[in-house]
Amino acid sequence: MRRRRKNAIKKHTSRVFSALVYLFLYAPIAVVILFSFNTSKRNVLFEGFTLDWYAKMAGNTALLESFKNTLLVAGISTAIATVIGTITAIAMFRYKFRGKSIIDLLLYIPVVIPEIVLGIALLSVFSLVNVPLGLGSMIVAHVTFQIPFIVFTVRARLSGFDRSIEDAAMDLGANRIKVLTGITIPIIAPGIVSGAVLAFTLSIDDIIISFFTTGAKSTTFPLKIMELVRSGVSPDVYALSTIIILATFVIVLISQITVYRANKKSVKL
């Protein structure tokens, strides 16, 4: 009897604990979604349901413009970083060369270095070589901090990669380019996709580095919100945030399904 009760307590504690963790993670998001439908402008009490804020947001060109910039920067920088990062990861996996461990270490530095340092560093480089600040400089800056993340995820995928698969393809008549495009890249594709998704999300919500490397006319969404916070956030920002949350959810879902399918195909028994 006693033991059964003990087990019941154990079971309930773990359930309560998990519930609390998820509450902690998702309650703030739920609040944002809830207040985007609130009739009151002050987000203290929920007074009634409305879609007015969504309409207002649709008319807020400055906000939408900043969001467009964010997508543009994230899209372009992710594409560039994915190509460079994937090639780097393959090269680091394939070749042994003098000083490889140092190059390895240098890849970690941008990840652990305080972002503010990287931001200042990039700003001073841009002004040193007279690069005008704007979307272009911001894209370059984002590529800089995205590359290591792509390299890490692709390399994790490569770590289980059997080199003799490439040998086999070459043995069967494929030249080096065909081996890369037809064999290596398709096999490591799940790693490339998850690296790209990670890099994309990092770019979307980056504030510090963007703050240092942006121009006057090229505000991104997070920077815009920072600016608005000073005068109090109005619920139309909640409305846009809700849309972003939904979009993120859909993207994550799609990428997870893609990776799952790719894995299922090659690992299913």
Binding site: D162, S164, D167, D171, I187, A262
Partner: peptide, 14 residues
């Protein structure tokens, strides 16, 4: 004009 059978088989998993 030679072909190899590898120890690990090296089949293309995809």
């Amino acid at each position: 004009n030679v072909n190899t059978v590898f120890q690990s088989y090296a089949l293309f998993p995809h």
